[in-house]
Structure formats: C-alpha cells, structure tokens
C-alpha cells in the first residue's frame, strides 16, 4: 500500500501530461500528421491490434535474441579479460574505446553481412548491447574486493573456487547495471535494424506509417516500442532485485 502511495505523484504527473496532450492538440488545432490526439493514438492501437501485435512480437523477439547473445558473449569476454593479463592490456582498452564509435554508423554493415532477414536485426541489437554488458561485467570483476580474495586464498581456495565464490558474486551488481542499460537500448537497436531494411517489426510499421503521414499509426508504434523498452528494463530490474535485493549498500 505504501509503495503505491509513493508512486502516486509520478502516476498523476503522467495523467496530467496525457491530458495536456489531448487538450493541447484540440485547442491549438495541431494537424494529426504533426501530433495526433492521444485518443486517436489509442484508437489506432485498437484498430490495428492484431497487426501491431504481430509486429510487436517480431521486434521483441529480435531484441531478446540480441540481448541473450550479448549477455553470453559479454560475460565470456569479461571473464577472458579478467583471467588473462594480455587480454586485459589489449582487448579491454579496445572495447572501452570502441564505445566512442557511432554504432549507428556501423549498423548498415550488419545489413551488408547478414542480409534483410532476422539475422541483421539481431546483429544490430548485439552491436548496441554487447558493450555495456561486457564493460560493466569486466569492471565488476576488476573491482572485486582483493582482500576477500586473499582471505579465501589463505583458506586454501583454488582458481575455480575463487572464481565461483568471490569473482562472480562480486561482479553481479555491475553486471546488472550493464544488463539494465542493454535492456533499455536493445529495442532501439532492433528498430534501427528494421529501418535499415526489413519486412516486419514495429520499426518497419512506423516507417511505413510515417511515409504515409499517418501520424496516429506512427505514434501508436512509437508508444508500443517505448513500452517494450520499459518492460525489458523493468524485467532486468526485477531479476536484479530477486538476486541482489538482500545485499543493499554492499
């Protein structure tokens, strides 16, 4: 109950914004291809529910596949970076520096390599989500409390035991930071992949609607994409709380 009361201000604020949108578009007589009325957006969602649902699932699937791959590869890279001092000196700085490369500029390459099918979209999602997972997890390993490691070593822990009982639990909070970032941007990656060339997904849907100046449909698609991003973020946060909820402040 108390939790709900704490969330009341933000809920009310959103309702207020929605009301401003609805009333504002009417009062200022904004054309629907600039900003459609909110009620029209909802109506568009209702009218195209089946179609939107189909596109939604495709985009969601691309985002989830890309995320899964990034989690696996990101963790493996982080483990590699942590266990080999050569990798730490060569691969790690490269991964950090590569974050300054405009990923959007690289995305067309994915289409060139993986074609117009699902593969290229998943590849773009991986391009977006691999780095936050890999870098954050590697940082988590790196900043694990050394004294705890030494203590375990003094009690006879070997490499595997150190990894399982010290490194992994130490790195989990950073890993989840990376995962939440990745979850939030994965939908953006999938949408971009669809824009660059695709036949299905909410990215394709919104692009087509925009070409036809169907403002209500564009906003319907954007709204659903936003919801998907939020949902993935919240899901990641939920898993984080399940696993780390008891720790608090380290």
């Amino acid at each position: 109950m108390r939790k709900w009361i704490e969330k009341l201000p933000i809920v009310l604020f959103i309702v207020l914004l929605a009301a401003c949108w609805e009333v504002g578009t009417m009062v200022f007589d904004i054309p629907p291809y600039i900003i459609p009325r909110l009620s029209d957006v909802f109506a568009a969602i209702g009218d195209n529910a089946a179609l939107l649902g189909k596109h939604f699932v495709i985009t969601l699937w691309e985002a989830l596949l890309g995320l899964t791959f990034s989690i696996l590869c990101g963790m493996l890279s982080a483990i590699w970076i942590d266990s080999s001092s050569l990798a730490r000196k060569t691969i790690y700085p490269l991964i950090v520096a590569s974050q300054t490369i405009p990923i959007i500029a690289l995305s067309p390459i994915m289409v060139m390599w993986f074609g117009y099918e699902m593969g290229s979209k998943v590849a773009v999602v991986i391009l977006f989500t691999f780095f936050p997972v890999a870098v954050n997890t590697a940082d988590g390993f790196r900043t694990a409390d050394r004294e705890i490691g030494e203590l375990l070593r003094s009690m006879g822990a070997g490499r595997t035991q150190l990894f399982l009982k010290w490194k992994i639990p130490s790195a989990l909070p950073s890993f989840f930071t990376g995962l939440k970032m990745a979850a939030a941007i994965s939908v953006g990656g999938a949408t971009l992949g669809e824009w660059l060339g695709g036949e299905a997904g909410l990215g394709v849907f919104t692009k087509r609607a925009a070409n036809m100046l169907r403002g209500d449909d564009v906003f319907a698609g954007v709204l659903l994409l936003s919801l998907m991003g939020v949902a993935l973020f919240v899901a990641a946060q939920f898993i984080e709380r399940l696993m780390l909820g008891h720790r608090r402040n380290g």
Binding site: D145, E147, I148, L151, P169, R247, G250
Partner: peptide
C-alpha cells in the same frame, strides 16, 4: 577489515 562477503 572484517572482509565479510556482503552476499552471504
């Protein structure tokens, strides 16, 4: 330092 593991 006590070096207790916060996850245990």
């Amino acid at each position: 330092r006590d070096c207790l593991m916060p996850w245990r």
